[in-house]
Design a binder for these strands. Structure first.
Length: 284
DNA sequence: CTGCATGTTAGGTT
DNA sequence: CAACCTAACATGCA
């Protein structure tokens, strides 16, 4: 579920509610959600005040007054939800954080149990390898850097864009959407994409992500922000989930195939393989 | 009912 | 070592 715009939306929503609150209690229902972190280490954060919420790639970070950080990865179906403090534990709730003098609590909910969290208590690296290997954030990457990274590899461009060590934040939905807007076939060897197309791709990434954040993310199945509000960017999707529908730009039927072993949507007419230099499309 | 798909990534195999 | 494939898990849909 959550790619960059959804994690950003989650962080924005939580910031208002959590800033300045002091952690009082940690309830762990499913030990498996703790990654390289002992229940004791997590509970030791009690008393610390929340001083910041941030995002790196698809990671969401809770910063505390004592310098500690709790890092969350929501994977496919993870959510952070604010609920009444008295509310009973739901079936998929893995962990709850309670705060001093607050009648609500933060719940980590994840049906599929892929998501996790970790506490970073000292100055060292995060105990999560990927966190320390992230490429530049998709909203920060410069055209030059993107260009360099793509020309260095012959992997399908979609595989590269999904690789968080190359560029952080994009997932299956937004990669398909960005490649369509840039007129690039998802299976194109990235080293064969023209400089002009890469410039268009860079622009598409910025525009799509910005717009998606403004929309509060895409709700394809289950995504909701911390207050239970669904995102609306899915109404702007042009290829994702549109198999067989007509392309908005040219009218061809959107195709669905497998690239980098991921379900992939694209327009066979707007996104020609290995054909260079197609102009990017209008704004969303 | 059964089989297949799903927004991610770690870990194994080429 | 880069590239590729699938398991991890639970649920919804054809």
């Amino acid at each position: 579920m959550p790619e960059l715009p959804e994690v950003e939306t989650m962080a924005l929503g939580l910031r208002k509610d959590l800033l300045g609150r002091s952690l009082e209690r940690v309830k762990i229902f499913e030990k498996g959600v703790l990654r390289e972190t002992s229940p004791r280490a997590l509970r030791a954060l009690s008393g610390a005040r929340v001083v910041g919420l941030s995002r790196r790639g698809k990671f969401l970070l809770l910063h505390f007054s004592n310098g500690a950080v709790i890092l969350f990865h929501l994977k496919m179906t993870g959510r952070l939800v604010l609920q009444d403090r008295t509310r009973r534990r739901g079936p998929w709730e893995r962990l709850q954080l309670e705060f001093e003098g607050w009648d609500r609590k933060l719940s980590f909910v994840d049906p599929r149990k892929f998501g996790y969290l970790a506490a970073i208590t000292d100055e060292g690296d995060a105990p999560v390898p990927l966190m320390n290997e992230l490429g530049p954030d998709a909203l920060q990457v410069t055209p030059v850097t993107l260009q360099e990274m793509l020309t260095e590899s012959r992997r399908p461009v979609k595989a590269l864009l999904l690789d968080q060590r190359v560029i952080a934040g994009l997932g299956n939905i937004y990669v398909d959407e960005c490649l369509h807007r840039a007129g690039i076939h998802p299976a194109s060897p990235s080293s064969e994409i023209s400089e002009e197309s890469i410039a268009g791709l860079h622009q598409a990434i910025r525009e799509v992500l910005r717009c998606a954040i403004e929309c509060g993310g895409s709700t394809v199945r289950t995504f909701q922000d911390s207050r239970g509000t669904a995102g609306t960017y899915q109404v702007h999707h042009r290829v994702y989930g549109k198999k067989g529908e007509r392309c908005r730009s040219c009218g061809s039927a959107i195709e669905y195939t497998r690239v980098a072993s991921r379900g992939t949507h694209y327009c066979p007419s707007c996104q020609k393989k290995t054909r260079s230099g197609r102009k990017r499309r209008k704004k969303t």
